[in-house]
């Protein structure tokens, strides 16, 4: 288990493999982001995106799934305060396969809670062609050893 004390600025982790499906794009969009280019293939083909694309928030949800599967079991984290500087850089389409590269950017000790600290982690989510589709800097709460 990696605690606040164990992670080092500059550490890089690569993980995850998420196959994006048409059905999941539409299912997410129906519930959370019902815009035509996320919902309807014909409307999406006629849009500036030239085909169905995933909601950016769906890409965020796929990202957290990969984090919870691969990082959470081995890092002593207890949630996150949020994130900064999220960029949606490229469309995510059915058939894309996403993976994550995360880098420890900064460690901030808590003054009020000596048993924990905040770690800024920059993550880049890439597709099967190595194109970064989304990036963000998460503020993750780690327990101390």
């Amino acid at each position: 288990m990696k605690y606040f004390d164990d992670v080092q600025v500059g550490d890089v982790m690569r993980f995850g493999r998420y196959e994006v499906t048409r059905d999941e794009i539409i299912e997410y969009a129906r519930q959370f982001d019902p815009q035509p280019f996320h919902l309807d293939e014909e409307a999406a083909n006629a849009s500036m995106f030239g085909g169905l694309i995933a909601s950016g928030w769906h890409t965020g949800a796929m990202f957290i799934r990969m984090v919870v599967e691969h990082m959470t079991p081995v890092h002593a984290t207890t949630g996150a305060m949020g994130f900064d500087d999220l960029k949606w850089l490229k469309p995510v389409r059915p058939g894309d396969v996403l993976s994550v590269e995360s880098e420890i950017r900064e460690k901030i000790e808590s003054r009020s809670r000596p048993d924990r600290g905040t770690v800024k982690i920059e993550s880049r989510i890439s597709n099967q062609r190595g194109e970064v589709v989304m990036s963000l800097v998460s503020l993750v709460i780690y327990l101390r050893r």
Partner: peptide, 28 residues
């Protein structure tokens, strides 16, 4: 965040606002 997005999409629709996507966010 998804719920906030849904409420925003519904509000854009009510106002017939010509929303055209987002390049990103400063903070959450």
């Amino acid at each position: 965040c998804g719920l906030l997005m849904r409420l925003s999409v519904d509000a854009n629709r009510r106002e017939a606002a010509a929303a055209s996507g987002s390049p990103g966010l400063d903070s959450c």
